[in-house]
Design a protein around this nucleic acid. Structure first.
Lengths: 341, 341
DNA sequence: ATGAAAGCGCTAACAA
DNA sequence: TTGTTAGCGCTTTCAT
């Protein structure tokens, strides 16, 4: 049945003995440090293979260096959201960005305060070299707890306009503005919006962009053109139904996520509206559409692949020389026309 | 900007000095070991608070005991599946089962062989006390690698009928049988099935159950009544379209996941079939429907909450006294009638 | 009830 | 190029 407990395996010392060298040499071989005669290296490797030696990671990180692990944290109290494509896509892009490294990616869900506390102890305890945060709500104290503990931290998105932690974000206001401007240019004038949860800065920004575009066109955004969702498809359906009830003359909708856009589309069709003839719909990319049969929705596309890469890069830099100032990176979005707007 | 690196915090020794006690005593207080005078305990706690002491987890696990962390691994090469509700539900149920413990749950995605290797080193290196595996394909060597390394391991589902690793599974064959029997009892006779990927034992079992029910009724399962999907909604749509083309007379469908059932429903409606009047549909619960507006599909329900609890319980036991024989637990399923069958 | 001391297995600085 | 050694911060006997 294998060994008793992990940690019951052979040690560096036993390998050294078998290979007839000192422990230092074995350590050098294991860590690929230059300056070991090729023949000795070979002998050590043979001993390692023979004993099926695996370094004890606790000892390694205690002795000084890296942990070789980083955590990607989902601070989302609503478990249903874990199934949103935005999460799986983000996880994937971060995983991809890590393929060339030896870093182990650990995902963690933080829903309750108990889990928050447990995770902070885990991170402060030095079990990870750095932390990536996604989907952070405005009032979440986790980023500051981590920063105060000196744990290198990078967020995907920000909690407010005045953020003192390194983050990577998409140009949400700009993306929303370009979407709505596009709708205006196509001759639409009664343009509703379905926002994300307004306790999230990302949702506020997209709403701001929507308003800015209308403003610039000399139009007043009517309060009853705005309905709040929570980024899920279901909430898009509900919000759209409400909007139609309030203002039957709507001829365009900007949804702050494309899950919500898909929901809105459902609701519009259920109400007998033709899309895009009667109503044009634009969503903000959260990658749902890539998985759907009907990829006709126009979307504001976030460069998620690049967001993942950038987060990892910033985190590695912060791990390298911690204490440096935080940095903010805003990535451009792109309007992808696919026929429904 | 906080401390330099994690691990730069105060040590046990400094706490001991400040509290005027020995290191052993501080250790006892931190670990809630009985046999410390109440006044001393208080003094130590004050010192801990004062210095904001957090134990170094690497040192702790090196010095002997637990790691206080377990990993939940998704061995799924197809990243799209991460968005399936089955995963988020499983994660949630395991997380819930862990609330009363001090164990940190780490999620890990293992898609490539590189990631597999990296994770095995992580686990063998003693960074987790145990591993939970979900969605394991038949040919995946990961479970054996972990077992050989002596890492306590529990799987959700099994890779074959002859599994030598502890697992928890639903009664897949039985659930499928009861579903199809129900359809037969309702007077249906041309019953198709959409299977999961047949390289997964779970899919084979559900197919076997389907066949068994037809057999028992004296019916022959026609080969062209069977179409293979991959558990996703999209694959359900495709498979259903194919089935209709092959056999227009289908009056019932058993889908091996309810994501696929939902897709099948779509395809049926698109083809002008009325559900359940013309065709009855039953899915195997993967929890998609809980999130949908139209919860009318009849499903075979797996007790996922209990599956999560059971996996955690078995893992804890295995961590306790490792080396014990493996155990298999099969949980009963339940047919939940909701109107479409 | 508490202090002292011996490691846990490794890395890194220092010698040789 | 390689061996030796001093810790890393904690748990855990063993005395006291």
């Amino acid at each position: 049945m294998g060994k008793q407990r992990p940690g019951a395996g052979p040690t560096l010392e036993e390998v050294a003995a078998l290979a007839g060298v000192g422990r230092g040499t074995v350590s050098r071989v294991v860590n690929n440090v230059a300056g070991v005669k090729e023949s000795t290296r070979r002998a050590v490797q043979r001993a390692i293979a023979e004993l099926e030696y695996v370094p004890n990671l606790a000892a390694r990180s205690l002795a000084g260096r890296r942990t070789d692990a980083i955590a990607l944290v989902m601070t989302e109290p609503d478990w249903r959201k874990f199934a949103e494509p935005f999460f799986s896509e983000t996880i994937r892009s971060v995983g991809d960005a890590l393929t060339d490294t030896t870093l182990q990616l650990l995902l963690t869900q933080v829903r309750t305060n108990g889990e928050r506390k447990r995770f902070v102890e885990y991170a402060r305890g030095g079990r990870v070299d750095g932390v990536l945060l996604m989907s952070v709500h405005a009032e979440d104290p986790l980023p500051d707890m981590l920063a105060d503990a000196g744990v290198p931290t990078v967020m995907l998105g920000r909690r407010s306009g005045d953020e003192s932690i390194t983050y990577v974000d998409a140009d949400n206001a700009g993306g929303a503005r370009s979407a709505v401007t596009h709708l205006l240019n196509s001759g639409r004038s009664t343009i509703a919006t379905i926002t994300g949860p307004l306790d999230m800065y990302v949702a506020q920004c997209r709403l701001r962009g929507y308003r800015a575009a209308l403003d610039r066109a000399g139009l007043d955004a009517q309060p009853f053109w705005v309905a709040e969702g929570d980024f899920t498809e279901q909430s898009g359906r509900t919000a759209m139904a409400e909007l139609i009830a309030r203002e039957p003359g709507i001829d365009a909708v900007f949804a702050a996520s494309d899950s919500m856009a898909a929901g809105a589309l459902d609701a519009l069709r259920a109400a007998g509206r033709r899309v895009p003839e009667d109503v044009a719909v634009i969503g903000f990319d959260d990658f749902l559409l890539a998985q759907r049969t009907d990829p006709t929705l126009t979307t504001v596309r976030q460069p998620l692949q690049e967001i993942g890469r950038t987060m990892v890069r910033l985190l590695l830099e912060e791990m390298e020389d911690s204490g440096v100032a935080w940095r903010h990176v805003i990535l451009r979005t792109e309007l992808v026309l696919r026929g429904s707007a």
